[in-house]
């Protein structure tokens, strides 16, 4: 690009001639900010009035229609509470139809989390050596509900669960486990044909069971 002749520079498209390290060709000085249109005294007054009236019309429309109210009287309307798609609540994990882990322990969510709130523990499957989910630690106390983990999960395992009433008196109770069971590796499990038998081989886990994995100094 340095060897371009004067002619080439003039004829080539702008983006190509501009070296990425220096400002674009043809741009001198700061960019001009768009200025509001200036016209005569009366035009300004009338257009200003018009836009003010328009604004008042908008607010009056909201005022005169009680149906536009979005406030929810929360503790009273617990039964009919409406949560929106964008609401950020406790992180939840989706399991497959048989209740087994859908999560493949790919660690994407762990890497995406800006606060290191997620720690995924895996164990290798004995035959293939591929990882399998063992324990999923989610630290609600440091989570900012940024939704990044939900977005990155390639298997759509994570979700905002829709529950949010989680006040506790001990901050240790803010460290959650999202796996639902412990037991033999999936390879062993899946060899058993009878689903009832499989269920019997695993041990259910609640949000506080097991030893949570904490980064920095924790078991890893």
């Amino acid at each position: 690009m340095n060897k371009m002749s004067q002619e080439d520079i003039l004829t080539a498209p702008l983006a190509e001639t501009a070296p990425s390290s220096s400002p674009a060709v043809g741009m001198t000085g700061p960019l001009a900010a768009p200025r509001p249109e200036r016209r005569g005294f009366w035009w300004n007054i009338l257009s200003g009035l018009r836009s003010l009236l328009k604004g008042m019309g908008v607010t009056f429309r909201y005022f005169s229609r009680p149906s536009t109210v979005v406030t929810q009287q929360y503790p009273e309307n617990r039964a009919t509470l409406k949560l929106f798609d964008r609401s950020r609540t406790l992180l939840g994990m989706i399991h497959d139809e048989n209740g087994f882990h859908k999560c493949t322990a790919c660690h994407f969510c762990e890497k995406a989390c800006p606060n290191a709130s997620i720690t995924v523990a895996e164990r290798p499957k004995p035959a293939t050596g591929k990882p399998e989910l063992d324990y999923f630690t989610w630290r609600m106390d440091s989570c900012t509900y940024c939704n990044a983990c939900v977005i990155v999960c390639p298997f759509s395992v994570l979700t905002m669960s829709g529950t949010f009433e989680n006040s506790v008196f001990d901050s240790r109770l803010l460290i959650y486990n999202l796996t639902r069971y412990a037991g033999p590796t999936s390879q062993v499990l899946m060899k058993i044909a009878d689903p009832e038998e499989r269920k019997r081989m695993i041990e259910t886990r609640g949000v506080f069971s097991g030893v949570p994995l904490l980064r920095k100094g924790g078991r890893k």
């Binding site: 607010t59 009056f60 909201y62 005022f63 009680p66 536009t68 109210v69 979005v70 406030t71 009287q73």
Partner: peptide, 13 residues
Amino acid sequence: KIAAHFQCRLGPM
């Protein structure tokens, strides 16, 4: 109350 309803809220309830 009026402010609340202008802003799609309910105000003191």
